[in-house]
């Protein structure tokens, strides 16, 4: 029975870990053709080109980082502040229903619908355009995420601060933001990840001019350059892994 259990556990671990190990090995290979058992070259040659302009991976990584950080910061802060007004509004139910509106369409279709307006505004194919398009998806998520934070007890805290002499800014700065710190961090991570892995909307609004890392992965695969594709995938995984670590160490344990 013990052997069976160990066997299942090992299979489970291999199934989870193997794709990542294989990606890393593939990123270090070149000239690996069927039916060869081993690649022609195995080493850090591909990784040495990350910083170079030939692959453009480092540049895409930076663009992705700028876009995702912008989307995460703006949608988290706007979501937190605006969700307060939605939650206390007499027409809360209607406003909450409208929040789900961007999700009734697939991001690609949604992007196609938005493209005309983005073209008219002159932000089609720009980094700002992609940030704005992704914000339209991430912001409603943040609104829904924070809606559970606002309740009668929080309203009582706000009223208490007011009677102690504090204005709205003091209430936000000294009470609401510190009290929601854990939720703010989780929302930041979630919206960062929504943006980081976004493909459909980015490819339509970015029209190939804004090459995020996710777009780059698909480009390499289309070019049959699996080694660079694998390398891009490895880099694509780094921020989520860092965030999961921070989340677990500094947020999740404290929330519990």
């Amino acid at each position: 029975m013990g052997r069976w259990k160990n066997g299942i556990l090992i299979t489970y671990l291999v199934a989870i870990v193997f794709p990542f190990i294989f990606l890393f090995l593939l990123s270090m290979s070149s000239g690996w053709r069927f039916p060869d058992l081993l690649p022609e070259y195995f080493g850090f040659k591909n990784w040495g080109k990350v910083a170079g302009t030939e692959s453009g991976i480092a540049q895409s990584f930076l663009i992705s980082l700028v876009i995702s950080l912008s989307v995460a910061v703006s949608s988290t802060l706007c979501g937190f502040v605006i969700s307060r007004y939605v939650s206390y509004h007499p027409k809360k139910r209607l406003l909450t229903l409208l929040t789900y509106f961007p999700y009734i369409l697939a991001p690609v279709v949604f992007g196609a619908c938005l493209s005309y307006y983005f073209l008219k505004m002159g932000i089609f194919g720009t980094t700002f355009g992609v940030v704005l398009a992704q914000f339209i998806i991430a912001f409603p998520y943040a609104l829904i995420f924070f809606s559970s934070f606002w309740n009668e007890k929080i309203k009582s805290y706000e009223d208490l601060v007011a009677t102690l002499g504090g204005g709205s800014l003091t209430t936000f700065r000294k009470v609401l933001l510190p009290m929601a710190r854990g939720l703010l961090m989780v929302c930041f991570f979630q919206t960062f990840l929504i943006s980081w892995f976004e493909y459909g909307l980015t490819s339509i609004i970015g029209v190939g001019k804004v090459q995020t890392l996710t777009i780059k992965v698909f480009l390499f695969i289309k070019e049959s350059n699996f080694y660079y594709g694998a390398m891009s995938c490895c880099m694509l995984i780094i921020p989520p892994v860092v965030m999961i670590y921070i989340n677990k160490k500094y947020v999740f344990n404290k929330l519990i």
């Binding site: 805290y157 208490l160 007011a162 009677t163 002499g165 204005g167």
Partner: peptide
């Protein structure tokens, strides 16, 4: 407005930060 009245309201719940 409430913040300028110098009247403090104490709730049944302690509402400590």
């Amino acid at each position: 407005e409430a913040s300028k009245r110098n009247i403090v309201y104490l709730y049944q719940e302690d509402l400590l930060f």
